[in-house]
Computed example of a mutant assay.
Amino acid sequence: MSATPTRAAIASVCAALLLGGLKGWAAWATGSVAMLASLADSLLDLVASLVTLAGVRIAAQPPDAEHRFGHGKAEALAALFQVALISVSAAFIAVRAVQRLAAGEVAAQAESGIAVSVVAIVVTLLLTAYQRRAIAASGSIAIKTDRLHYQSDLLLNAGVIAALAAEQYLSLTGADPLFGIAIALWLLWGAWRGASEAIAQLMDREWPEAKRRALVEVAAREPELESLHDLRTRTSGSQDFAQFHIHVPGTMSVAAAHALVEKLEQRLEAAFPGTEILIHVDPAGHVDHPGDTLREADEIEQLKE
Score class of each variant (00 low, 15 high):
256 A>Q: 12
193 R>I: 02
202 L>A: 09
63 P>C: 00
266 Q>Y: 03
257 A>E: 06
57 R>I: 05
23 K>P: 05
177 P>Y: 08
138 S>D: 12
249 P>Q: 11
33 V>Q: 06
30 T>Y: 03
226 E>L: 00
164 L>E: 13
278 L>R: 12
274 G>N: 02
159 G>T: 13
102 A>L: 10
111 E>R: 09
162 A>R: 09
39 L>E: 06
2 S>Q: 07
289 H>K: 12
153 D>E: 07
212 R>C: 04
27 A>F: 01
146 D>F: 06
183 I>W: 08
79 A>V: 02
89 S>G: 13
98 V>L: 10
184 A>Q: 15
267 R>Q: 05
108 A>T: 14
87 S>F: 04
114 I>R: 12
304 K>Q: 15
209 E>L: 08
81 F>P: 06
75 E>Y: 00
268 L>V: 00
195 A>R: 11
99 Q>Y: 01
105 E>T: 11
235 T>D: 04
154 L>T: 14
262 E>L: 01
160 V>P: 08
104 G>A: 03
79 A>R: 07
239 Q>Y: 08
132 R>I: 07
116 V>P: 06
67 H>L: 02
23 K>R: 09
37 A>M: 00
88 V>K: 05
92 F>M: 14
155 L>G: 14
114 I>L: 09
183 I>E: 07
163 A>W: 06
141 I>E: 15
184 A>F: 01
202 L>M: 08
172 L>Y: 10
133 R>T: 09
88 V>A: 13
130 Y>K: 13
55 G>I: 01
79 A>F: 01
299 E>T: 04
253 S>E: 03
195 A>Q: 10
108 A>Y: 01
65 A>F: 01
